[in-house]
Every structure is written in C-alpha cells, then in structure tokens.
C-alpha cells in the first residue's frame, strides 16, 4: 500500500473528474457559487469514504453476481443519511443543491470507485482512496466555482463570505453573465480538462 501514490493519483493523474471523466452532472450543475461547490464536495467525500470502507469490509461475503445491487444499497443508505442531516442542520445548502443531493446515489464516481477499487482492496487502502478521490473531486468543483463566479459575477466566496453575498471584486455588470448559465459550466469544464490533458502530455515527454 502506498498512500503517497494514492494521493497523487486522486488529486492529479487519476483525478475523478478531469481524467476519469466521472460525475459530470453535479460538476456542471451546482458549480455556480463557492458554498455550493464546497458543500457538494464535502458531502461526496464523506459518502465516498464511508461507502468505500463498508464495501471493502463486506467484499468477501457478497456474491459476485449481485455486487452492483449491494453497492447501490450501501451508497443509497449513506446518501439518505447525509441528505437528512443537511436538511436538518444546513437547510440553505440543502435547498440550493436541491435534487442533486439524492442524486449523489447515481454519481458515477462512487459506484466507479466501489467497482474499480474498494471491491478489490483492503479497508485501509479503500479508506484513503475515498478521501483522496473525494478531495480531487472537491478541488475541481472549487476551481469551477471560483472561475465561474469570478468571471461571471465578479465576486468570490458566494454563499459563504460577507453574509452570503460574497466579496465583490468588480461590478457584476462587467461580468460574463453567460458563465453562470449552463453554457458556462460546459465551457469551463472543457477548458479545465484540456489544461489537464496538456499538462499530462507535457509531463510524459
């Protein structure tokens, strides 16, 4: 087991969003303000880590044929818990993420890691895999949020700093309003993936 290698894979060389291209829906949909991105990232990281640990723990007693169904039930259980906790303690976040919290169940990152990693590896390795992949996902979300919010509305830290309005860096009228719309999500993510591919190919040479 090599934690350093897992760390590098989760954040860079095997980044769930930029390299494996998993979990696109939430990445595109909710990255309009800093708080949304942070909340979603933390929620996914927690669920991913817990489900990785549980799936790795039960991997020897689950028959091969029904493993996907088992994974989904485990994941759905954790998602329901997080959903209810958010509704109870952070209602604002729960409201702005809306349907995308229960949709974490079908976030391909979690099922993908269950199938590709934790079903084949030990509990400790799965635990770290969950944390690092989750952090890799969160970092991409935050990068998307910061870019879209800054260029689109001229602010930083929306929903979190300055009583929810965010710090205004330049007047919102001068922003590229398009970036806060769905179009902006597609274009920003395209630029980030292209940047990643460029960096990886340069690294290889």
């Amino acid at each position: 087991m090599n934690i350093g290698k897992q760390f590098k894979e989760g954040l860079l060389t095997q980044n769930p969003v930029l390299v494996q291209v998993l979990g696109m829906c939430s990445t595109l949909a909710i990255t309009t303000s800093f708080f949304n991105g942070l909340g979603m990232g933390v929620a996914v990281t927690i669920i991913l880590t817990l489900s990785n640990v549980i799936i790795s723990a039960i991997r020897k007693i689950v028959p091969d044929k029904i493993r996907i169904a088992m994974f989904i039930v485990v994941i759905a259980g954790f998602v329901t818990m997080v959903d209810l906790l958010l509704q109870a303690f952070v209602p604002a976040l729960s409201e702005s993420l809306g349907v995308f919290i229960p949709l974490i169940v079908v976030n391909c990152i979690i099922l993908g890691r269950a199938e590709a990693f934790s079903y084949k590896n030990g509990i400790v390795a799965s635990f770290f895999d969950g944390i690092f992949q989750g952090i890799g996902y969160t970092l991409v979300l935050l990068a998307m949020c910061i870019i879209r919010e800054f260029l689109g509305k001229g602010s930083f830290g929306g929903g979190l700093l300055n009583g929810g309005a965010g710090i205004q860096i330049f007047p919102a009228d001068y922003g590229v309003g398009m970036l806060t719309l769905p179009v902006g999500g597609f274009l920003t993510l395209a630029c980030l993936i292209a940047l990643m591919q460029w960096a990886l190919s340069k690294n290889k040479k």
Binding site: V21, M178, L181, P182, V183, G184, G185, F186, L187, L189, A190, C191, I193, A194, L195, Q197, W198, S201
Partner: peptide, 23 residues
C-alpha cells in the same frame, strides 16, 4: 483543433454551444 482538446474537451465545447442554442 489543438491536440490537448482531443476527446472530451472539444465535445464539451460543442455541448456548450448547443446549450447556448437551446437557451
């Protein structure tokens, strides 16, 4: 198009432009 845009990035740009049209 540039090599680093191959695959998903160029597809995402296309999807983005289509989203603009659907808007």
């Amino acid at each position: 198009y540039p090599k680093s845009w191959e695959g998903f990035p160029i597809a995402l740009v296309t999807a983005g432009l289509m989203a603009l049209a659907f808007m």
